[in-house]
Amino acid sequence: MGSKAKKRVVLPTRPAPPTVEQILEDVQRAQAKDPVFTALAAEDPPGPSRSTEDSKAQWKELYQQSWAYVAMNQQLQRAGNGLRQKCEHLRRAGEDLEREVEQVKQAALLETATAASV
């Protein structure tokens, strides 16, 4: 019978990663319509490029929206914590009320039983 052992395939060694200079040269040689750059570009409609003022205004608006989002998120977290505390307080108050109602019932039954025996 023959050996069923498979021959190991020897893979070639990996090439060394490119240097920073090679990467920069590659990026500088790339055309403006290179799919890598167009796929990652902002989703602005094609046309004349925005002015610097428009760009600054857009960044300022994005910053303000981000800041407002963070502030609202913190406010919602505080409100959620407050609601959890109030819910726990109401649960405890409900348990206390149930105990007191049970005590009143017991006292009423005891009073009724005492009055019936007299």
Rank of each mutant, 00 (worst) to 15 (best):
L24G: 09
K33L: 07
D26C: 09
Q77N: 09
L110N: 09
P18T: 01
D26L: 06
Q64T: 01
Q106G: 13
L24H: 10
R99T: 09
A42D: 11
E43M: 04
A5Q: 14
Y63G: 09
E43N: 13
A71C: 00
E102T: 11
P48W: 10
S55V: 06
Q77G: 05
N81C: 01
V101A: 10
K60W: 02
R50I: 04
Y63W: 03
G82E: 10
W67S: 14
E100K: 15
Q74E: 13
Q65H: 04
P46T: 12
S55C: 11
G94K: 08
W67N: 12
Q75W: 07
S117R: 07
Q31M: 11
Q58V: 06
V101N: 14
P46R: 06
V118D: 13
E95P: 02
L109W: 05
A79G: 01
Q85I: 00
G80E: 08
P12Q: 14
L90N: 07
E25H: 15
Q58D: 13
V36L: 12
L76N: 07
T38S: 05
E88F: 08
V101E: 06
E111Q: 09
A39N: 14
V104D: 12
M72S: 04
L40G: 00
T52E: 12
L97P: 00
P12T: 03
Q22K: 15
G80D: 06
R99C: 05
M1F: 02
Q58L: 03
V10L: 09
E95L: 10
P45Q: 11
R84E: 02
H89C: 01
E100C: 04
M1A: 13
K4L: 11
S3C: 12
A71Q: 09
I23A: 12
Q22Y: 05
E95F: 05
E21M: 03
A68E: 02
S49L: 14
T112Y: 06
C87D: 04
L109E: 15
A5W: 11
K86S: 15
R50K: 15
A93C: 15
T13E: 05
I23Q: 12
D54Y: 03
C87F: 13
M72A: 03
V10K: 12
S117M: 10
E43R: 14
V10Q: 01
A93N: 08
F37M: 14
Q106D: 12
L24D: 11
T112C: 06
L110R: 15
E100R: 15
W59F: 03
D26R: 15
N81H: 00
K6D: 01
Q28F: 05
W67R: 11
V101P: 06
A30Q: 11
L76Q: 03
S66Q: 04
V9G: 10
K86R: 05
P12A: 13
V104L: 15
K4T: 05
W67K: 09
